[in-house]
C-alpha cells in the first residue's frame, strides 16, 4: 500500500506551540495546541510526540515548515524545510480557507497584526510596535485578576447591557482604570465588555492605523476564541467578522502549506519522530568575543553535538549553521 503523505506545520509562539498535519490536498488531519510555558523545546517535543501518536503509523512526512517567534529553534530541533515569518504563513493559510478574504486580524499572545489581502496576495501588513495592550497575554492577566476563567471571559462580555468605557491606550493605564471602575461599583460583565471594546479600539488605532479594512474580515489567533472581542470588532467595523474553524493554529497550517509548496520532489530534512523524541536537546547561549558588540549566540546541542547556532549581527554564526546543516545532510 502506498504510504500517505503528510506535511507538518509548527508555530512556536510566545504563549502557545501549535503543530498541525495536513495531507497532500491541504486538508487538516490533526492539530495540537499547547501552552509554551516558557519551555519551548520540551513542549515542542511533547507536542510532536502527541502528533506522532495521532497519525497512523504508515505516514511519510514529506515536508516540515516552522513559523512564529521560535521558528529557528523549532527548525533546528525538527529539521525543517521551510522557515517563514508569521505574516506570510498566516496569509497563505487564510487564502486557502477563505479565498475572498481581504483583511486578516490576528491577535496572538504577545503580538497582534493586521494583514491586508488584495487579489489573492498579501498587499500590506502591520504589527504592533509599541504596546502589548490588546494581546492575549494582557487578557489572560486581567481574567486571572478578576478570577474569571479565560474561556468564559467572552461569554460574560456578551451579557453586559451598558459597557463602561476603559482607557485602552496602554496596558498599565487600562489596568488601573479597570480597578478604578471596579471600586466605583460597576458590575463585572460591564467591565469585561468595556475591556473588550478598549482592546479593539487600541488595536484599530495602533495596528490598524491608516489601513483600509475591507470585508471579508477574518479574525484569528488565540484571542479569536473570545466571542466578546469578536463582537466588539463587529460593532467597531460595522461588518461581520469570520472566525475560521482552525483559527488557533492558522500560522502552523500556513507553515505546513509553505512546506508543501516548497517540497516538490525533494526529500524532507525532517529528522524523524523517533530521533526527535529520543534525543536530548539542550540550548545554551554564550557571548561572542569577536568584537565589542558581544552578541549573544545561541547554541543548540543534541547529545553533545552542536546542531545549530544563531544570533549575532555580523552573520558569521549564521554561516556556521549552514555548514553544520551540510554536514548533517552528507
Amino acid at each position: 500500500m502506498r504510504k500517505s503523505q503528510v506535511y507538518l506545520g509548527v508555530d512556536v509562539g510566545s504563549v502557545s506551540i501549535n503543530v498541525v498535519a495536513i495531507d497532500g490536498n491541504g486538508n487538516v488531519l490533526e492539530k495540537i495546541y499547547m501552552r509554551t510555558e516558557g519551555k519551548p523545546i520540551q513542549i515542542l517535543k511533547e507536542a510532536v510526540g502527541r502528533m506522532a501518536s495521532l497519525l497512523p503509523a504508515n505516514v511519510e512526512i514529506k515536508g516540515v515548515g516552522t513559523t512564529g517567534s521560535g521558528r529557528q529553534l523549532a527548525a533546528a530541533v525538527l529539521g525543517a524545510d521551510v522557515v517563514k515569518n508569521e505574516i506570510t504563513a498566516h496569509g497563505v493559510a487564510v487564502l486557502a480557507f477563505e479565498p475572498d478574504a481581504r483583511t486578516i486580524i490576528e491577535v496572538g499572545g504577545q503580538d497582534s497584526k493586521i494583514i491586508l489581502l488584495r487579489d489573492g496576495v498579501v498587499s500590506d501588513f502591520a504589527m504592533n510596535t509599541v504596546c502589548a495592550a490588546g494581546t492575549g497575554s494582557f487578557l489572560d492577566r486581567q481574567a486571572a485578576r478578576l478570577n474569571i476563567p479565560i474561556e468564559r471571559f467572552g461569554e460574560l462580555a456578551l451579557k453586559s447591557r451598558s459597557p463602561v468605557r476603559i482607557a485602552g491606550r496602554c496596558a498599565v493605564f487600562a489596568e488601573s482604570d479597570m480597578i478604578h471602575k471596579q471600586q466605583m461599583g460597576c458590575c463585572c460583565e460591564d467591565i469585561v465588555r468595556g475591556l473588550c471594546e478598549a482592546l479593539v479600539r487600541n488595536y484599530l488605532n495602533n495596528v490598524g492605523k491608516g489601513k483600509e479594512i475591507l470585508p471579508k474580515v477574518v479574525f484569528q489567533g488565540g484571542v479569536a476564541a473570545n466571542v466578546g472581542i469578536r463582537k466588539a470588532f463587529e460593532d467597531a467595523l460595522g461588518c461581520p467578522v469570520v472566525v475560521p474553524t482552525h483559527f488557533d493554529v492558522m500560522g502552523a497550517i500556513g507553515a505546513a502549506m509553505l512546506s508543501k509548496q516548497h517540497a516538490g520532489g525533494n526529500k524532507s530534512k525532517f529528522r524523524g519522530f523517533d530521533r526527535i523524541l529520543q534525543n536530548e536537546f539542550h540550548s545554551e547561549s554564550f557571548e561572542c568575543n569577536g568584537c565589542p558588540n558581544y552578541c549573544e549566540i545561541i547554541r543548540l546541542t543534541s547529545d553533545g553535538a552542536t546542531v545549530a547556532l544563531w544570533g549575532g549581527r555580523c552573520g558569521k554564526w549564521a554561516g556556521s549553521q549552514e555548514r553544520i546543516e551540510e554536514k548533517r545532510m552528507a
Binding site: K84, N85, I87, T88
Partner: peptide, 22 residues
C-alpha cells in the same frame, strides 16, 4: 528588537515576491 525588525523585512519581501509571481 532585531527579531521583529527582521520579521517585517522578510514579510515585506515575501509580499513583493508574491506580487511579482502574480
Amino acid at each position: 528588537g532585531e527579531a521583529g525588525y527582521f520579521t517585517r523585512l522578510e514579510a515585506f519581501i515575501d509580499l513583493l515576491e508574491q506580487r511579482r509571481n502574480r
